[in-house]
């Protein structure tokens, strides 16, 4: 069986470091990091073509991203024939950033308020299993 990944889309290096640290504690998967919306978008398109997207266990998506916003990426995932079934968890640092209505419409597994804790990530993964 091929390797599987956690795709982390996060522009802030500190936040990326903290998230990676927690992911590393909880998940055996390798982390794929996209540092802005554009990079994430290109990566996802490539993975859709070569079918490597099937190896993504979970997408952790920061909403506030430069160039292409988190919501736009979520929208692109949901409208792509290949990617639409991906499990996406939204990362946010405040209520105000979170467009809950829009996220619910597009379908997300959960929202996690930063800083993410190991327990929180575990509970999300339990939930994914239950889906």
């Amino acid at each position: 069986m091929a390797e599987s990944y956690i795709l982390l889309i996060e522009d802030n290096p500190d936040d990326a470091f903290l998230a990676s640290r927690i992911i590393g504690k909880v998940c055996p998967e390798k982390i794929l990091l996209a540092r802005d919306g554009e990079e994430a978008s290109e990566l996802l398109q490539r993975m859709a073509l070569d079918e490597s997207y099937k190896q993504i266990r979970l997408v952790l998506l920061d909403l506030k991203l430069p160039k292409i916003s988190g919501l736009d990426i979520l929208q692109a995932i949901r409208s792509s024939a290949e990617l639409r079934t991906l499990s996406v968890v939204v990362l946010t640092s405040s209520d105000n950033d979170l467009d809950q209505e829009r996220c619910r419409e597009l379908g997300v597994l959960d929202y996690i308020f930063k800083p993410m804790t190991a327990d929180r990530l575990k509970s999300v993964l339990v939930r994914k299993k239950g889906d």
Binding site: N12, D14, D15, L18, R21, K64, S93, S94, N96, D97, F113, K114, P115, M116, T117
Partner: peptide, 21 residues
């Protein structure tokens, strides 16, 4: 107030993350 609730929250959350780490 937007500045406080958005821009200030992010670094504070980061700081909290590092404290926990």
């Amino acid at each position: 107030s937007y500045f406080v609730s958005h821009d200030l929250r992010a670094p504070v959350a980061r700081l909290e993350g590092f404290c926990r780490a």
